[in-house]
Write a protein that binds this DNA or RNA. Structure first.
Length: 133
RNA sequence: UUGGAAGGGCGGAGAAUCGCUCCCGGCGCAAGCGGGGGGAGGAAAGUCCGAACACCGCAGGGCGUGAUGCCGCGUAACUCCGGUUCGGCCGGAGAUACACGCGGGAGGAAAGUUGAAAGACGUUCCGACGGAAAGUGCCACAGAAAAUAAGACCGCCGCCGUCUGUUUGAGGCGGUAAGGGUGAAAAGGUGGUGUAAGAGACCACCGCGCGAAGCGCAAGCAACGCGGCACGGAAAACCCCAUCGGGUGCAAGGCCAAAUAGGAAACCGAGGAGUUGUCCGCUCCGGGUUUCGUGAAAGCGAAACAGGUUUCGGGUAUCGGUCGCUCAGACAAAUGAUUCUCUCCGUUCGCAAGAACGCAGACAGAAUUCGGCUUACAGCCCUUCCAAAACC
RNA sequence: UGUCCGAUGGUGUAAUGGUAACACAGAGCCCUUUGAAGGCUUUAUUCAUGGUUCGAAUCCAUGUCGGACAA
């Protein structure tokens, strides 16, 4: 498997599942507005990230924005699923719990999972949100 | 076999790991955990039509406005009835299509055949197709004239009459729509008789109009008879006639258990509000002040006469019967990610077997439901027809 | 998801069914010592395809693209 497994190399005491349930989603319009206006922002490659750090022990949450500029419903669904998948795979690699919003850009059309994952990890590393390995 | 046209169909399969969403059991105070099952399309799209369904203090009338307009047949969700093993089950019936599909008939176009021509005939394609003898308006430019059977520019003909040797010619008065020219269109066509020249003035054929035996369920076709010809085009101009339509669309002037509450009381006051184009009519009781009180989310609407599947039968194929199964459903919105195997297709290499490469590679993602139309689409399959080549 | 609008040169707008007009901009030429201003010329398959009509930017149908509103 070319994509590094989150558990690989870092033995965790308890086996943590890679679930991504409904409680992990940011659903309120107010949360979106707060993160977009007050959160930190970084654009790289095919995505834009807005985030706010949360206190330790909190549940990290994810919101995804795919505008009509990306394309039709097929392209937007694909972009949202890829971004959610990258967050799900790496949700335990975060150094600190955050509320994060990932905005897809036009260049995400046609990208594979590996390319999107690379952009996501680079963004997190530059933002200092990734655990040191 | 190859190519083309028309019509119809399909739109990869299997598996592993990690996930998402819905339903049903189990455990748990709860968060949740674990088990079983379901989970995008032929167009889900565009929103171009129609319908269901729901609501709007009722839908009744007038005016306005919109849609539709040849004939026949067929068809959905839906509604109703009966039975019931109560299952969203079985059987039957009805309706709406001025959505649409199929077939036919007027009409039009193209090339062809025939004919001296007008026209006729069959083929192919199109075919939004009531009324232009109810009314109003329009038909640019060109042309003499563009719609009261009008119109005399060039012509043709007759008469008068001037000049002159005579005719021609100039001029005047009349007749004439055969010819020229303009135009999309010039007021029946062709041929003849006739005439000063002409003219349906008369005749033959054709066309046209009216009637009509007969044929056809019907639209309609039409032998035959009558009429000398009347009715230019356009209603996808206004309009007239007939039929239909109340409005709003699940993001609804929709519903919503329990708790809270929607409200209750008093006074003032004589009209107010609604009916969503407007008026009449109709319906409701409202409005202001004071006092107590006066949140939002979630949920319902909303998922099944469909569909897929096992097996049987015939068929080239689409298909038909039968058995058992219940089978997408959210609301910042599930149906995904990665990997392996097989198969289809394409390219390259190879005599071939086969190998390598190409992300199973096109258009595209359900949002109340149903039917239709239109648009997009890699590749493949089936039927029919046409053309070419080879073989018998 | 539903409802509703619009499309004319590069831009902004006009146009009874009858030669697509105006302004600005662009290019070229004239004028001028040069420039500005001015003058002349040029720049359009009226979103596409069909249909009605003698004739379509206009009327009708379908599609394409763009936009607005409703939580």
């Amino acid at each position: 498997m070319p994509a590094p497994t989150p558990d690989a190399g870092s033995p965790t005491p308890a086996r943590r599942t890679l679930r991504l349930g409904r409680s992990v989603r940011i659903e309120r319009s107010g949360d979106f507005a707060r993160l977009r206006q007050q959160g930190q922002r970084m654009a790289l490659g095919c995505l834009i990230a807005n985030w706010q750090r949360l206190p330790d022990g909190a549940q990290p949450r994810l919101g995804v924005v795919t505008s009509k500029k990306i394309g039709g419903a097929v392209q937007r669904n694909r972009a949202r699923r890829l971004l959610r998948e990258t967050f799900r795979r790496h949700q335990y690699d975060l150094a600190q719990p955050v509320d994060i919003i990932l905005v897809a850009r036009n260049s995400i059309a046609g990208r594979t999972y590996a390319e999107v994952e690379k952009d996501y990890l680079t963004t997190l590393r530059r933002a200092g949100l990734l655990k040191p390995t």
